[in-house]
Write a protein that binds this DNA or RNA. Structure first.
Lengths: 109, 109
DNA sequence: CATGTATTTGGCAATTATGCCAAACAGCAA
DNA sequence: TTGCTGTTTGGCATAATTGCCAAATACATG
């Protein structure tokens, strides 16, 4: 019965994880391939500890996965599907107001 | 130069607006067509004033638009593109972990 | 073992979000 | 006008988020 509410919360968690400029930025940077925390820190401009916590949020949401190699931790997209969401987002922002519910041709393959 | 940061913030705002269970629920309800605030209140189970504020967040983010008719205010999706994001979300959550960056066949047309 | 590099964790202050109530506001009808 | 329905706004208490610092941890190397 709570399954529906749980599912809703899980879905919202993904959006929420992307709903912060720094986290969104990091995901976009990771679109090009994995990066270690120190690399991301240089490009995002926040304290390393803050970056680490943001990355943990994205892992928790299922957007990223991490892998430790030597003394570095590398983060990467868990699945490239998330990039499609960015495409959708761009289309949504570009899209004119619509009065009908006809599915527009947004987010093509 | 702040254009990039502004864009990032605007994009994050959309995700953030969807990153709350109640707001996500309302958007999903509105996928079937416009609803007035009182209808949504009954289905979400929060105080009307709270619903109203959540709806304002979604309008601010560009996800919804509102229209007043008689003494009721109807909300609807600004563009159906947002529904594609839900498809993407489902695919993302179903998608297995991937090690390569090859675009998987998620979010088909 | 001691040192250096890389990352995470704990904790704190400041900010923001959430949800309720009460009050204000808008529009319709008697 | 008055009353009624529907919505928004203001305000408040509580909770969550954000970002920094300092300390702890993990790992490789000298």
């Amino acid at each position: 019965m709570n399954a529906a509410a749980d599912n809703l919360r899980t879905q919202a968690q993904v959006f929420k994880s992307l709903g912060h400029p720094a986290r969104l930025r990091m995901v976009q940077l990771l679109a090009d391939g994995e990066r270690c925390v120190c690399d991301l820190t240089g490009q995002v401009g926040l304290d390393i500890s803050t970056i680490s916590k943001h990355l943990a949020v994205l892992v928790q949401a299922g957007v990223l996965v991490s892998e430790k190699r030597a003394n570095k931790v590398f983060y990467r997209l868990r699945t490239p599907c998330v990039l499609k969401m960015f495409t959708c987002l761009g289309e949504l922002q570009q899209s004119p107001d619509s009065t009908s519910l006809v599915e527009a041709t947004c987010c093509p393959p």
